[in-house]
Design a protein around this nucleic acid. Sequence first.
DNA 1: TATTGTTATACTCTATAACTATA
DNA 2: TATAGTTATAGAGTATAACAATA
Lengths: 141, 141
Amino acid sequence: MIRDPLKDLPGYALRRVSVAFMSRLAARLVRLHLRPTEATVLLVIQDNPGVKQSEIGRLLGVVSANMAPLVARLADRNLIIRQAVDGRSQGLTLSEAGRRTAQKARGIMDDHEADLIAHIPKADCAAFVRVLHTLANQKDN
Amino acid sequence: MIRDPLKDLPGYALRRVSVAFMSRLAARLVRLHLRPTEATVLLVIQDNPGVKQSEIGRLLGVVSANMAPLVARLADRNLIIRQAVDGRSQGLTLSEAGRRTAQKARGIMDDHEADLIAHIPKADCAAFVRVLHTLANQKDN
DNA sequence: TATTGTTATACTCTATAACTATA
DNA sequence: TATAGTTATAGAGTATAACAATA
């Protein structure tokens, strides 16, 4: 066996766990022909009808240059509808097909989250979730 | 303010934290002209002189097709030395420059890990690290 | 002036397929 | 047959720069 200098680095473990988790989520979402980021955008629109893509980008940490083609793909597939709210921005809502897809995506993501929780020893689960939210809500980049 | 349907999903928080953490690490490593993955490979070689790149790939979860150009870059920069151990595989060791670079990379990564720990409430830190290692060592993909 | 949306471009990590050469 | 290494290619997320149009 080979020595592992990264064995005791929590940050490295965090990275590995996140990559594996995302890869499994992507595999589950191919059934809906959605990427993980596309799925999250659908959920945000579902919960915020009329939201602007700039607002979604700020919420999810996606820069506007990447929101543009993402939203365009969803619109091309008739999953969302763009309606001008003023001259430079559009409100996004789900189409009927988009509602169905968003509902399925939500089910997949909920199952996926439940799987994660299921793999965590019960005694440590609450603390784990607490720390994640603490770290996620820190302003350092 | 806009509703956030992902607020209570630990898996999503995990992803966001991991991305931010990795991006900060990448920013710190530019000084050495190293990507995060290159830095981890250097550390593995430092701790395992003569290791084969296939072994590194298995340890780090990097497929061989991606190890090839990565190792080639490090060799081109004279940070590592490839010595044939048999007809199809080579043992990797650090050059003198590679040792210096690996040492600096280790310092950067240690600092970076320390920063992560510093942002975690003390009471939950041990549980957090425990869970990460539990999840990282599970065989599900 | 600041914001919205867009295009073009690039980097990093990940992955599969197909191949050569060797064990 | 299986393994080591390589090349080519692709997908996904992230990022910056530059721009037009609008507020």
